[in-house]
Amino acid sequence: MSPVIALVIVAALVAVTTILGFVLRSRSVRVTKSDITALDLRELGIPTTDGLWSVVQFTTVYCSRCPAVRRSITSALQQRPDAVFSEVDLTDRPQVANQLRILQTPTVLVVAPDGMVAARLAGEVTGADVVAEIE
């Protein structure tokens, strides 16, 4: 292959990756109405929270963005005495990831006091995103 065409390929690779980077950055938080309606907190090892909202963040030890997301959520939840934060490490529990269809970390579930999942957030979630889902 001629060096000119090779240079074009390399330049295209850089350009496409740059665009991909900006796309990933701009839509880094996805909020979906969860198709998993009820979540058994006790099964996940989370103490039941009578009458309180539960914010559950799923992480793995390889998740580089999770610590910052946790800090943002716990700090925002200080204004919400009706919500409790907990974290579930899925590194060694792929069966839980399978059950809940979690492919990406962090994934945050906002669980209503009745145990129903109100929202599922994935990506670079902020505390404000979470609070917005607590009705």
Partner: peptide, 25 residues
């Protein structure tokens, strides 16, 4: 590999880390 390294260097996005659960699954 370039795509993953570039996203990490320029955007702080760790593609390999994001893929962990997907790879396990």
């Amino acid at each position: 590999a370039f795509v993953a390294a570039f996203l990490n260097a320029a955007f702080g996005f760790c593609l390999g880390c994001e893929m962990y659960l997907g790879l396990v699954r």
